[in-house]
């Protein structure tokens, strides 16, 4: 049996390693070994998006992702999104729009928005709603979230060389 193993990966830009059980999920390992609590297991079925992390730039449900499959990949969590004190434009936009109430779902929404804007810097409202349909906010902050994504899109464009002026 090889029911435990050592995995090495890049975590928020830093080299990381952990001894894990083959049956452990990525969100369990991030919380238990690295004290990163931004990704939360909520529905446990990949439906709610609270456990979202980026694996090689792709959003995944950390609760449905075997930690063993993280060996050799780059992982980004909400904790690694800001550059020092400077927030990511998506984080700024969520704050400015008040796009949360309790904040439990917010890391997932922000990371999903980050991937959306990487793929599609100027999404329509329909595209935003469709893309975020796999994330649930039980406080019902959806109208503000949609506004925040639009604002983030504007901020990202204005920060990108050659992008539209703010």
């Amino acid at each position: 049996m090889s029911a435990t193993r050592r995995i090495r990966f890049t975590l928020n830009g830093q080299a990381a390693a952990a001894e894990i059980g083959t049956h452990e999920t990525l969100v369990e390992v991030l919380r238990d070994r690295f004290a990163l609590f931004g990704a939360r297991e909520s529905c446990s079925q990949g439906l709610c998006g609270c456990c979202t992390v980026l694996v090689d730039g792709h959003a995944v449900s950390g609760c449905l992702f075997l930690a063993a499959a993280a060996d050799g990949v780059k992982i980004q969590t909400i904790e690694g999104l800001a550059s020092g004190e400077r927030l990511d434009p998506v984080q700024e936009a969520f704050l400015e729009c008040g796009a949360f109430q309790c904040g439990f779902c917010t890391p997932g929404f922000i990371l999903m928005t980050r991937q959306l804007l990487d793929e599609n810097p100027a999404p329509s409202e329909d595209e935003i709603r469709h893309y975020l349909s796999g994330n649930l906010c039980r406080c019902g902050a959806y109208p503000e979230i949609i506004e925040a994504v639009k604002l983030a899109s504007h901020k990202v464009k204005s920060r990108t060389p050659g992008g539209a002026a703010p």
Binding site: G46, V55, H58, V60, S61, L64, F65, M112, Q115, G134
Partner: peptide
């Protein structure tokens, strides 16, 4: 595929 489950499922 655009309407299959959600983005995170399709990513994996």
């Amino acid at each position: 595929l655009r309407t299959l489950a959600n983005v995170r499922v399709r990513n994996v």
